[in-house]
Design a protein around this nucleic acid. Structure first.
Lengths: 244, 244
DNA sequence: GCTGTTCATTGATTGCGATCAATGCGCGGT
DNA sequence: ACCGCGCATTGATCGCAATCAATGAACAGC
C-alpha cells in the first residue's frame, strides 16, 4: 500500500497523477519533473459514483473531462425520437466527456456500471496547460483522435458484421483492454447486462444471449451469467471474420 | 470575381484564409487582424484532387489536415479481414484527416467523388499556432469533438434505424449541409453511387434503391438518377422516426 | 454513333435477427 | 429461508433486408 505516503485532502485519499498507477494510460510519457508537477495541479477533485448513478447527463453544461480511476461506465445517447443506444463502455484509465467540447453541453449520459471513482479534469485548466506543455497538448490530441478511430471501428462493426461476429469482436476487445490493465485476458466478469451489450452492438438481448450460447457450444468459451472464460482466444478472433 | 486582387503563387490562384468565403465554416470567428494574419500562414499549399483519386490512403504517414475548398469526398475504412465501410461524406469547408493524429498514420482512405481542391494544413504548424491563439485552440478542439458526436449519431443510425429511416436521415443531413452552404435544401445532386450510400448506411445497394423508390412513391421526393428533389422536407424528417 | 461498362431499378426468394412467449435462475431485501 | 424482481435462456414464428437474378439506363471511350 503506497497510499500511506500520499497526502490526504478533503476529498479523501488522493493520489497525484505523478504517482498514479494509471499514469501510462491517461497521461503522456516523457514529461519533465517540473511539467509533471504542473500536470498534478490539473486534477480538480475526485468523485465517487455509486453503481447505477450518472456521472453526467445529456444536456448538462460541459465543464470537465473525467478520467476513470476505478470502476466501469457506459455512455448512452438518447435521440429526440426516443431511441437509445449505448455508444461505449469505459474502464479505468479512459477519458470521458470529449463529446461535450463541441457544444458546451454533454451529449450523452455517462452512468456507472459499478461503484466507480473518477478524476475531474477542468477543461479550462487542461486547455491552458496544454498551451504550455507541448507533450500534453499532443497527448490530448491523440486521445481525441483515437476516440474518433474507435467510433469508426464501431461503425464498421454495426455496418458490416453479423451478430456472432459482433459479439466475438466485443469480447476480444474487452479481453484486450482487461489484459492491458494487468487483468486476465481470458477470464473476466461482464459489468453490463445482455440488453446493454445488445444496445451497443445493435442487437436485441435475445440475440446476444443466443450468440453467447452458440460460442459456448462451439467450445470457444464458457458463459455463466456475467462470467466469461475464453478457451480459444485465437478462434474467437477468427470468429470476428466472415464465414469461418 | 474578387480573385483579381489576390496574390498568385506557384500553386496557382490563392485565397488567403482571411479572405476565403468558407471562413465561417472552417475558421474560428472573433480573431483579431493580427491573429488572422498568422492563421493565413497556416495553409501550406493547395492540392487539386481529380475525381476518383485519393487525397490520402490508409497507412500513409499523417502530416497534415485537409480543409475542403471545393468538391466532395468520401472516407472509407478497410479492415484487416477485407470489409469496407464508407465512414463519411465530406463537403466544402469540412476538415479531413483527424483520425491520423492518434497513430501518426492515416486510418482510412479519403477519395474525391468529384474534382476537388483542398487546403493543406500542416499539423505541426496548427499545433504551434493553437498554443499561441486561444481561440484557434478552442476552435480546433470543438471541431474534433463535433466529429466524435457526428460519429455517435451514425452509430445510432446503424444500431437502431430501419432502412427507410436511415435513408431519410441521410437525405435530411445532406439537405441541411447543402443549405448551410447556400445551396438549395430541396434539390441537389448526389455525388456518390447507391453502393456508396449503402456502405455508409449499412445497407445493400438494392435496398437503397428500393428505399428511394419508396420515398418517391410516398410523394416525399423525386429521384432521377443522382438528382434528388425533396417535396416534403417536414415529412422526410418525420420519416426518420419509427412507425409513421 | 456505336459499344462496353458502370450504375440503377425491380422482381423472386431466402435467411438472419426481431419479436412474441414461456420458463428458469440469481440476487437483494426482510 | 422465502419471496419478488430483474436478468437470462430458449423456443416458435414473423418480417425486413440480403441475396440472386434479369433488365434497363447513363456515360465514357473510340
Amino acid at each position: 500500500m503506497n497510499s500511506v505516503s500520499i497526502p490526504i485532502t478533503t476529498q479523501g485519499l488522493q493520489v497525484a497523477c505523478s504517482a498514479c498507477n494509471l499514469r501510462e494510460l491517461c497521461m503522456p510519457v516523457g514529461l519533465s519533473d517540473d511539467e509533471l508537477e504542473r500536470v498534478d495541479t490539473l486534477i480538480g477533485a475526485r468523485r465517487k459514483i455509486p453503481r447505477g448513478m450518472p456521472l453526467y447527463l445529456s444536456g448538462e453544461s460541459f465543464q470537465s473531462l473525467y478520467a476513470i480511476r476505478t470502476g466501469f461506465f457506459k455512455t448512452e445517447v438518447i435521440s429526440e425520437d426516443g431511441r437509445e443506444q449505448v455508444t461505449g463502455f469505459q474502464m479505468a484509465g479512459e477519458l470521458m466527456g470529449l463529446d461535450g467540447i463541441g457544444t458546451g453541453q454533454h451529449n450523452c449520459d455517462a452512468r456507472a456500471l459499478e461503484d466507480s471513482e473518477v478524476c475531474v479534469i477542468p477543461f479550462n485548466r487542461l486547455s491552458e496547460l496544454s498551451r504550455e506543455i507541448d507533450t500534453l497538448q499532443h497527448h490530448f490530441h491523440k486521445v481525441m483522435s483515437r476516440e474518433i478511430v474507435r467510433d469508426q471501428a464501431v461503425m464498421m462493426l454495426l455496418g458490416t458484421m453479423r451478430a456472432e461476429e459482433r459479439l466475438a469482436a466485443f469480447l476480444v476487445n474487452l479481453s484486450q483492454r482487461f489484459a492491458s490493465r494487468g487483468y486476465s485476458a481470458t477470464e473476466f466478469n461482464l459489468r453490463m447486462t445482455r440488453e446493454e451489450i445488445g444496445s451497443y452492438l445493435g442487437l436485441k438481448l435475445e440475440t446476444v444471449s443466443r450468440g453467447l450460447s452458440r460460442l459456448q457450444d462451439e467450445g470457444l468459451l464458457s458463459v455463466s451469467n456475467k462470467n466469461i472464460r475464453i478457451h480459444k482466444l485465437d478462434d474467437l478472433k477468427r470468429a470476428m471474420s466472415p464465414r469461418c
